[in-house]
Amino acid sequence: MRRFWPRRAQSREAAMTEDAPLSPELLPAGPDGIELRFARRPEPAAMAAVQVLAAEIAAAPPEGLRELVPGLVSVLLRLDPAAVAAVGPGLLARARAIAATRPALPAPTRRWTIPAAFGGAEGPDLAAVAARLGQSEAAAAAEICAAELRVLTIGFAPGQPYIGLLPEAWNLPRLPELTPSAPAGALVVAVRQLVLFGATSATGWRQVAQVAFRPFRPERAEPMPLRAGDAIRFAAAPADQIAALAGDPQGLGGARLEVLA
């Protein structure tokens, strides 16, 4: 069974909202696909429900499953076309049972620690973010590093992680205009989430740091090392250290992986 990045990253245009009752929906996704959606906005309870359902499906795949793609608030399955009708009702029933319990995020089985240079040229928007939070730049950076973060989904670009959730005070709006070019390794923030760019990209999010870790390298043995559900910690590092780590031919940039279970 193969896993790819989602066909869309559902966080990009919706602000983080307070939790509302979850109402799972079963949606068609072509002749060989089913999408199970827990909510229409990126609510924390929906994100947790997605990861619980995806873990259960991965542990006991239904007959005919070809691809499993967890998003922020939905799970996409690609199946043998003949299996779609048979899988749908059971999947919806399981999603409703999960939604009724409003589960917490499953315990992570892996944790990444990723060095990051905050502020200055490496995080040109950190000062503005800190001002909105009523904090110093150092305090804002420390809050990111202290947060219990997860890879919520991989999407928008190959290997690109959406990471969260930051404390509620970080429910910051996107910029009113796009920044034309943020560099590979930019760590950007909005709506209680962080995104780590694997390549240069335009963005409406605020860049607070720079890392040497690259979430996608096609020449690596594992091109996309991050997985939905991975725990993430950022470790503050000086800019010259990040610049030196950028020379890592594997693009891991000093990141360390711990297997927790």
Rank of each mutant, 00 (worst) to 15 (best):
E18A: 15
D19E: 06
D19W: 05
D19K: 03
S23R: 15
P24Y: 03
E25T: 04
L26R: 07
L27K: 08
L27Y: 00
P28C: 03
A29S: 09
P31Y: 01
G33D: 03
G33F: 01
I34G: 00
L36W: 05
R37E: 09
F38T: 10
A39S: 12
A39I: 00
A45F: 08
M47Y: 02
A49L: 06
V50I: 04
Q51I: 02
Q51A: 13
V52K: 00
V52F: 02
V52R: 00
A54P: 02
I57H: 01
A58K: 01
A58G: 08
A58M: 03
A58D: 12
A59N: 11
A59D: 13
P61M: 04
P62G: 12
P62N: 14
G64K: 07
R66H: 01
E67W: 12
V69M: 08
L72G: 12
V75K: 10
L76T: 12
A82E: 06
A85K: 09
A86N: 05
V87C: 14
V87P: 00
G88K: 07
P89Y: 01
G90I: 15
A93F: 04
R94C: 11
A97M: 08
A97C: 05
A100K: 10
R102K: 11
R102Q: 10
P103H: 05
P103V: 05
P103F: 03
P106E: 13
P106F: 10
P106S: 14
R110P: 09
W112H: 06
W112T: 11
T113K: 09
P115T: 14
A116C: 06
A116N: 02
A117L: 06
F118P: 08
G119Q: 00
G119R: 02
G120I: 14
G123D: 14
D125L: 12
L126H: 07
A127E: 11
A128I: 01
V129Q: 13
V129T: 15
A131R: 15
A131M: 14
R132P: 13
L133F: 07
G134A: 15
Q135D: 10
E137Q: 14
E137G: 11
A142D: 15
C145F: 03
